[in-house]
Design a protein around this nucleic acid. Structure first.
Length: 595
RNA sequence: GCAGGUGUGGUCCAGCUGGUUAUGACUAAGGCCUUCCAAGCCUUUAACCCGGGUUCGAAUCCCGGCACCUGCACCA
């Protein structure tokens, strides 16, 4: 069903990989000594570095290359935030359960089937209605149990007592919207601009089954790119216009079509250049951490799947042992989030659209004479003054010509204002621009899922180590030879350093070499024990791309061997050049074959 | 959350018609050997998911919890 490539992941291979991940210290279930809790995982010594390296690659793409500004905000937010964002409502289901067959149902769905509009009803009220209308279990006809609210957000409280409810964020994005004005100012009041945040998100999943793919606490990296919806073109898109990507359109969910992003925008398949640009950026980033091109596709959300305010939404999916899995969601969320928070907070979250030339506008202004208003209205003078200025000049003119100028004050009383209390003045105003709410395109990355994808796509099983002479079936059933073919940039350890034998001063030389590499900023692993083949194998298993070995020739001419993980090939280098060469190899500025 | 299955050293597994010193392999650690790809030999560490019950005696039978697998539901 999921295609030949997924089928290649039989259960044995998957277990083999997950055993390796635990054995070598990449990842394992949390709280194991207490029996564990579903949906929580610990990243071990290698896993946490791998995650950092993926995040570093992400920062390089979004912060350095795309110029996003970074923020780092709290994980806990007061309830009002999620009331505005819509999470309080959208993230919770009001559930009921059949007493006899225990099938779960959404109470609001059952009520609307019974002809009652259940929107905005509380769980309690829904329960009452269900009883009144004698709604029964649709599958077996049994009675329904109590109605309960289930929210996917973790709830907590700020301070003592329970009167300040708060939630752990289900995504990192909201704080960026709340900080919009500060960020707009940081960007010297110019749109477009992007803001990024890396951090944890929390979702209290009902039953997180697919292991690392669906966790209750997970790493996210999100970007929010604010732009003016009236700008039709987006110049940075030129870097991605010709990039060809596989698209699975909502109109034809059976067929993946490969096409350049530029054409997809022209043909109206992708809604804007901004959205297409970030699909291109995402494609480039995911390739850069080692996911093969063929294992990627962009899937467009259908109308129903998409939130009502969204214009267009594409998921980057990667083929894994669990089939195609969403790794990144790239959505055009229009002005929804900023508008919601503007309304909820009463604060202005708009930007200024500057006119190319400031517009001058002639306006007739009301000018009041306070010397007349003060003695006449005393304490009420201020209110009358404000009313006069607030009333349009045209309206005042009309009233003046009709003879009486009567204004109604807040307390309901009305006052007559003499015509001498104000005059009209024609002023010319220059208007620099108009305020508008920017739209936002949100690329949202699941870092843990990307890590799983990197691990699975890096994992290779072979019959024997790369340079083994005879391919004879070793009688030991130690399983296949396992290699993690990480790209050097994401590999947790960049280089192994070994003495060929633990004697003749070789360990001392190797230790010296290893500290030289460390000083150059390289994560190295020094290992003097066991046969050389075993040590290479250990490094292959954790995906270390290179290994340096000090041997007896080192004593004579100061050269060491360097081994390439994927081919097993070896070259000799001057020991004194080793650190720089390995650095070049890791940064991919030199190829192994050019050494 | 429901139904069914499963839970034994770091990993994979045997034992599970109650009584064993709980089997084996891999890995790991130490040593011998070894001049480049998991070689060999010796040694060592290390396990019955948690809690309760039945029983003279529980890894084994029963109940509850937790976790994992399969299916259903859920996945804004």
């Amino acid at each position: 069903m999921e295609g030949a490539q997924a089928a290649e992941w039989d259960r044995r291979k998957q277990q083999e990989l997950y055993a390796l991940l635990k054995r070598r210290g990449f990842v394992w279930p949390s709280f194991e000594i207490y029996g564990g809790v579903a949906g929580f995982y610990d990243l071990g010594p290698l896993g946490s570095v791998l995650k950092d390296n993926i995040e570093s690659a992400w920062k390089r793409t979004f912060l350095v290359e795309e110029g996003f500004m970074q923020v780092d905000c709290p994980s806990i937010s007061p309830e009002t935030v999620f009331r505005s964002s819509g999470h309080l409502e959208k993230f919770s289901d009001i559930m009921t359960r059949c007493v006899s067959c225990s099938a779960p149902f959404r109470a609001d769905h059952l009520l609307s089937d019974a002809g009652i509009d259940a929107v905005d009803l509380t769980a309690e009220v829904m329960g009452t209605y269900l009883t009144e209308k004698d709604v029964r279990c649709p599958s077996c006809g049994g009675t329904l149990g109590p109605v309960e609210e289930f929210n996917l957000m973790f709830k907590t409280h700020i301070g003592p007592g329970t009167d300040r409810p708060a939630y752990l964020r289900p995504e990192t994005a909201q704080s960026i919207f709340m900080d919009f004005s500060m960020l707009y100012r940081s960007n010297r009041e110019r749109v477009p601009f992007g803001v990024a945040q890396l951090g944890k998100g929390y979702r209290n999943e009902i039953s997180p089954r697919q292991g690392l793919l669906r966790q209750r606490e997970f790493h996210m990296a999100e970007g929010e790119f604010f732009f003016d919806p009236l700008e039709r073109t987006f110049p940075p898109f030129s870097t991605n216009r010709d990039r060809s990507v596989p698209l699975l359109m909502a109109s034809d969910p059976e067929r993946t079509v490969e096409m350049p992003l530029g054409r997809a925008v022209e043909d109206g398949i992708i809604c804007s250049e901004v959205l297409a640009h970030f699909m291109g950026v995402t494609h480039r980033f995911v390739l850069s951490i080692g996911i093969p091109r063929a294992a990627m596709r962009f899937r467009q959300h259908g109308r129903k799947e998409m939130a009502h305010y969204a214009n267009d939404c594409w998921d980057l999916e990667v083929l894994t042992s669990s089939g195609w899995v969403e790794m990144v969601g790239i959505a055009d969320r229009s002005a929804y989030d900023l508008s919601q928070h503007a309304r909820g907070s009463g604060c202005d979250l708009t930007a200024l659209r500057r006119f190319t030339t400031p517009r001058t506008k002639e306006a007739v202004k009301v000018r009041t004479d306070k010397k007349v208003l003060g003695p006449l209205f005393k304490a009420r003078a201020k209110e009358v003054d404000e009313l006069l200025c607030g009333t349009g000049s045209a309206e005042l003119e009309r009233m003046r010509s009709s003879g009486t100028i009567q204004l109604v004050l807040k307390d309901g009383s009305s006052v007559n204002v003499p015509a001498s209390a104000f005059s009209f003045e024609t002023v010319t105003e220059t208007v620099q621009g108009e305020r508008y709410t920017p739209h936002v395109v949100e690329p949202s990355f699941g870092i843990d899922r990307l890590m799983v994808a990197v691990l699975e796509h890096s994992y290779v099983e072979t019959a024997s180590s790369p340079m083994k002479e005879s391919d004879k079936d070793e009688d030991g059933d130690g399983g296949p030879y396992r290699v993690m073919r990480f790209l050097p940039s994401v590999a947790p350890i960049k280089c192994g350093v070994f003495p060929l034998l633990p004697k003749d001063n070789l360990p001392e030389l190797a230790l010296k070499l290893s500290s030289e590499l460390r000083s150059a900023g390289l994560a190295v692993h020094y290992d003097p024990s066991g046969s050389i083949g075993r040590r290479y194998a250990r490094m292959d298993e954790v995906g270390t791309p290179f290994a340096l070995t000090v041997d007896h020739r080192t004593l004579e001419d100061g050269t060491v061997t360097i081994r390439d993980r994927d081919t097993g090939e070896q070259r000799r280098l001057r020991s004194s050049d080793a650190a720089r060469k390995v650095l070049d190899l890791v940064q991919c500025s030199t190829a192994f074959s050019d050494l």
